[in-house]
Amino acid sequence: MSDLLVVSDLRVTFGGRPNGRAGGRTKSWARRGRTGLVAVDGVSLRVAPEETLAVVGESGSGKTTVARCVVGLQRPDSGSVTFEGRPLGPVGRRPPELQRAVQMVFQDPRSSLNPRMTVAELIGEAWRTHPAAAPAGDRPAALRRVLADVGLDGDVAARRAGDLSGGQCQRVSIARALAVGPRLLVCDEAVSALDVSVQAQILRLLVDLRSSHRLALLFITHDLGVVHQIADRVAVMRGGALVEEGPAGQVLGAPRHEYTRTLLDAALDLGAEA
């Protein structure tokens, strides 16, 4: 099967001049020749259509930076990101159809939605940005459909984001992404900030949407338990590099890399004793 998303040999450094490379973006405060922090160091990933790839790692592993490169919020020093063979540059330079194809759901829905905007305005904004995805006819009906897709009542449309619960906000974020017809959803810790009983709802929603909307998911998380529930494949990152990648059952059931084993040993289960 041909891949939807291909990330190859991605490298990102912060706060310095990339070693030995001319033309790297050098901030005035960066000393000449100083090597920055290597956040992502030669990472390659593939996501097939309708596949879920989970990227797991601890803080500083570079998993979020990879996600930001995929959605075009971070420019890599080298390496490439392609979508169906077409290069994905910074988000502002992407052709509209590629912008729409790759959408992101952030960790904290309360800070990623303007609290003073109504749900209808938030989703209308997505349609204004991408007129090609906007419904041709009856907007209120289209809005109700999008909200129903994420399990929200139509009457939520008139409410402000600031008045919604955390779970409802995350549903609105997902609805806003869905409204423009994405093929790949990049979820950066999309359930970490939610209450435990609400996490399960959002995971279930993502799994359902994946099949109903034929979505591929790039799921960034630190929680191995979540990985097992929704991912087909998993990539484990540490210190900017990929340490292990494979089918979720295999990587978590019989890890080959020592770091994956360390992560698994540290992860808590209900019942087991520390």
Binding site: V196, S197, Q199, A200, L203, R204, V207, D223, L224, G225, V226, H228, Q229, I230, A248, G249, L252, G253, L264, A267, L268, D269, L270
Partner: peptide
């Protein structure tokens, strides 16, 4: 029930 198991694949 909402706590996922880490070592074994559990249904959602």
């Amino acid at each position: 029930a909402s706590v996922p198991a880490v070592r074994t694949r559990t249904a959602l």
